[in-house]
């Protein structure tokens, strides 16, 4: 099984202060840390598990800026064989569809049985690139995949619907799977593997290799802003003891404890 994994380096914003920069269209990145997008880590692990089971190679591809090489090295350390960075700096503004068009030009030259992507990126939340890519490559896809069993020329998958319900499907290969978090337990890279990956070459592909003028940009961010406040919790302030006292009294008065 030859597998392509698409990954993205994203800012870790869950516990961070996120501020709009002076352009009004992007965020201030200086104080943020960046890492592999969460569901992409599961996509990579799924590829590594299949490779361990039945051999083959894993090619990791990312459309990203130069620092994406750090993320790709970590991906190599965790089990990918080769890594390709498509130079985001060559392609101006990106959206989900344009990213998919760029990925397509590189991936269509590779030999693959399966493509894995994460189901969404935590920065722009498009849920779009994987499915766009499958359509552009003319292969079937499944989204929100929470289990995959490979059979002869086809895969049995489970995908997560709303309310805890699962959909069980059969899909012919080659296919693209955009995986949900929790499908496996992503591994940590060993120190030896990290050292080995540091010496590997990461291929770079840019505007000399991809026809920039053929790419379509569907959407553009006009403005980023802090969501309007429709409701705001009444905040108890003070030491942990003080706030706990106020909260406990309130709960007691309301008969909730």
């Amino acid at each position: 099984m030859n597998i392509v994994v698409c990954i993205k380096r994203v800012p870790q914003t869950a516990d961070a202060q996120v501020r709009v920069d002076s352009s009004g269209k992007d965020i201030e990145k200086e104080r943020l840390t960046f890492d592999l997008n969460e569901s992409d880590a599961y996509a990579l692990e799924q590829a590594v598990l299949f490779k361990e089971q039945s051999g083959g190679t894993i090619t990791a591809v990312s459309v990203g800026h130069p620092d994406t090489e750090d993320t790709l090295r970590m991906v190599l350390a965790k089990g990918a064989d080769t890594a390709i960075r498509i130079k985001a700096e060559d392609f101006d503004e990106l959206d989900g569809y344009k990213t998919a068009q760029i990925l397509k030009t590189v991936i269509e030259k590779a030999e693959f049985d399966m493509i894995f992507t994460g189901c969404m990126a935590t920065d722009d939340g498009y849920y779009q690139v994987g499915v766009n890519l499958a359509q552009l490559l003319g292969i079937p896809h499944a989204t929100l995949v929470s289990s995959i069993e490979i059979g002869d020329g086809a895969a049995r998958i489970k995908r997560e619907l709303e309310g805890g319900l699962l959909e069980h499907d059969e899909i012919s290969l080659p296919a693209l799977f955009s995986v949900q978090t929790g499908i496996n337990v992503p591994r940590y890279a060993s120190l030896i593997a990290i050292r080995k990956a540091a010496k590997k070459e990461i291929a770079a592909v840019g505007q000399d290799d991809i026809d920039k003028d053929a790419l379509v940009l569907n959407t553009q961010i006009e403005e980023l802003f802090v969501p309007p406040v429709t409701k705001r919790a009444e905040i108890f302030s003070g030491t942990p003891e003080e706030v706990s006292g106020k909260l406990a009294d309130m709960l007691n008065e309301k008969g909730l404890i």
Partner: peptide, 19 residues
């Protein structure tokens, strides 16, 4: 056509313009 979407795990909203 313009839409409002959330980005950065709900911390910001974006006004997005279509081609």
């Amino acid at each position: 056509l313009k839409v409002i979407r959330q980005m950065y795990e709900g911390k910001l909203d974006a006004r997005v313009r279509f081609r």
